[in-house]
């Protein structure tokens, strides 16, 4: 079974036409990979479907805009995957 990161990296490569080898857990989706907000919505849609979750993008955006967390918290892929794992774990059985 593919890891969360492998699944997310494949989604990003497919959605944004980025070479898979350039996508690492340390990559920042915006600063390193150049993903814009519209592409990120497509990525979020694919992640929601793949993991059967609903990523709280609006809440995360508010937290970043309010200065409560840095963009690294949600846009560095390793961190994003940790949040995805938490959402998956929190799903009702």
């Amino acid at each position: 079974m593919a890891s969360t990161f492998e699944t997310v990296a494949d989604i990003i490569a497919d959605t944004c036409d980025i070479e898979r080898d350039k996508i690492t857990p340390e990559s920042h989706a915006i600063n390193d990979l150049g993903i814009d907000s519209l592409d990120f919505l497509d990525i979020a849609f694919a992640i929601d479907k793949s993991f059967a979750i609903k990523m709280p993008l609006e809440q995360w955006t508010r937290e970043v805009n309010d200065g409560k967390v840095s963009t690294e918290e949600y846009f560095v892929l390793g961190n994003l995957c940790k949040h995805i794992d938490l959402l998956v774990a929190a799903k009702p059985a």
């Binding site: 979020a44 609903k54 709280p56 993008l57 809440q59």
Partner: peptide, 9 residues
């Protein structure tokens, strides 16, 4: 078909 956070399909 999908009610996302900040988007819909």
């Amino acid at each position: 078909t999908h009610d996302g956070s900040g988007f819909a399909v």
